[in-house]
Amino acid sequence: MIIGRRKLIAGLGAGIALGGCQKILETEPADGLASSLDLFTRDAQRLVTDRNALAREYAPEERSPDFRANGSRTVDTPEYRRHLANGFADWRLTVGGMVARPLSLSIADLQQMPARTQITRHDCVEGWSAIGQWTGTPLSHLLRLARISDRARYVLFRCADSFGDTPYYESIDMIEAMHPQTIMAWRMNGQPLPERHGAPLRLRVERQLGYKHAKYVTGIEVIEDFRTIAGGKGGFWEDRAGYQWWAGI
């Protein structure tokens, strides 16, 4: 009987502790501390890793049989339907912002440039992974061509897709932008990039989680600061749902 009562007390104690834990962490100071850890984690990761280390590349037979598409699977505008119908012949990618030579390129222009093909793993923030082959133009090539300013700190991607009225966008820092596996991909698994995976052009930034890999990209902007853009957090999901800007973990 004594044990029964003690167990009951212990059980009640555990219940209160669990509820208390939920309450404490939802307060301002605890929440603020947790948020500032984002960049601490980035700095710690950069400290113990090689900034040019390549994401693992896989063999063709290690690819996912069916690569899950997530986020926007299309762009729901008549304009995008037209682009889709004529094979994206008139699609333009602009490169602007803090550059000496702004660019406006067609998909054909991009395909004339040096290209990189890689079979990599896509890791969604939700926890799932899929492996696929991507071919595209190295972002570093485009940034060198546009002659970016020394003050440039981030590269921001403007997208054609939107959630409601809010357009998708994302940003990465210069280290990830200049990484050799960071490409503007226009082919997937040997085919032109499919609609549901961001046709005609998407970002692959292989050491970051899936929401960084902007689809349906129309513009690349080289910037010093993203705090004045859109919701100020550097990306659509960062603004909308508080996702961490640093998506290396």
């Binding site: 990761q45 113990v48 890793t49 090689d50 280390a53 390549l54 994401a55 693992r56 793993r121 890791d123 926890g127 292989e206 050491r207 970051q208 989680l209 290396g248 973990i249």
Partner: peptide, 9 residues
Amino acid sequence: MSPMMNASW
């Protein structure tokens, strides 16, 4: 599970 760590480690 960290894509950044996967590249180096």
